[in-house]
């Protein structure tokens, strides 16, 4: 059974024409997928539907054996808190929390994530330290310091650490490298793939930049997946 499965999913904002129609999309547990999506291809909408922040008008979305499309809002929030890590292009962190508090935040929102950390015989703080260490941020001043003291590259790595906290089943990365320069970008991508693999998480990496796709074994094109975008292009 795939980790994530979409069938005949349709979405439109109220009063607007249909924006997204995905006949079929699947993601296996632990699988890494590059999803190429230029702006306007319905990328944000698709990620919103997968994360359970948006509700599909029709179709089926199953995640980890649960029916996301028909779940209550509260249940979808709980599933997201438990088993998804999201990395944005920028501004992933809460400016008023320390780096460590940002990384351990998912454990505050989800008991399951807290328990999964505990099962490995460590505390959220220790796990945050370990993850940041793996991501090249092993300085105590960084760990307890303010988010605003970090460079953009460092902030994105902290965001990876937070997404991986408590080993969620799916990491959604939405243009996480577009604010980085080429060299930092490649290093970041390698780290993200390595750590996702180490945590056993599937990775859905979305970018308009097809060059990044060379690092992935499976590449999907949102302009093909989303038949509405495909029609508009034709």
């Amino acid at each position: 059974m795939p980790l994530l499965s979409l069938k005949n999913v349709e979405f439109a904002w109220p009063g607007a024409p249909a924006l997204l129609r995905v006949p079929e999309f699947q993601l296996e547990a632990g699988e890494h997928v590059f999803l190429r999506g230029p702006s306007g291809s319905g990328k944000s909408t698709l990620l919103g539907l997968i994360a359970g922040v948006l509700t599909a008008d029709s179709g089926q979305i199953e995640f980890d054996g649960e029916d996301l499309a028909n779940a209550s809002n509260a249940k979808r929030d709980r599933i997201r808190a438990r088993d998804m890590g999201v990395i944005f292009q920028l501004f992933n962190l809460l400016p008023y929390l320390s780096v460590k508090a940002n990384v351990t935040l998912p454990c505050k929102l989800s008991a399951e994530r807290r328990n999964r950390v505990a099962e490995t015989g460590t505390s959220p703080d220790e796990e945050a330290r370990r993850l940041l260490d793996r991501l090249g941020l092993n300085d105590d001043r960084i760990l307890n310091g303010k988010v605003s003291n970090l460079s953009v590259g460092q902030q994105q790595r902290v965001a990876v650490a937070r997404a991986l906290m408590g080993r969620p089943k799916l990491i959604i990365a939405d243009e996480p490298t577009s604010a980085l320069d080429t060299k930092a970008r490649d290093a970041f991508l390698e780290l993200l793939k390595e750590e996702s693999a180490a945590a056993g998480s599937a990775l859905l990496f979305v970018s308009h930049d097809e060059h990044l796709g060379t690092a992935f074994s499976r590449i999907e094109d949102l302009e093909t997946l989303n038949t509405i975008a495909a029609e508009a292009r034709a």
Partner: peptide, 15 residues
Amino acid sequence: RREMAVLRAIGAGPA
């Protein structure tokens, strides 16, 4: 607004 979106992404509900 960004802060709220981050909280939503981590799993915070509207409530």
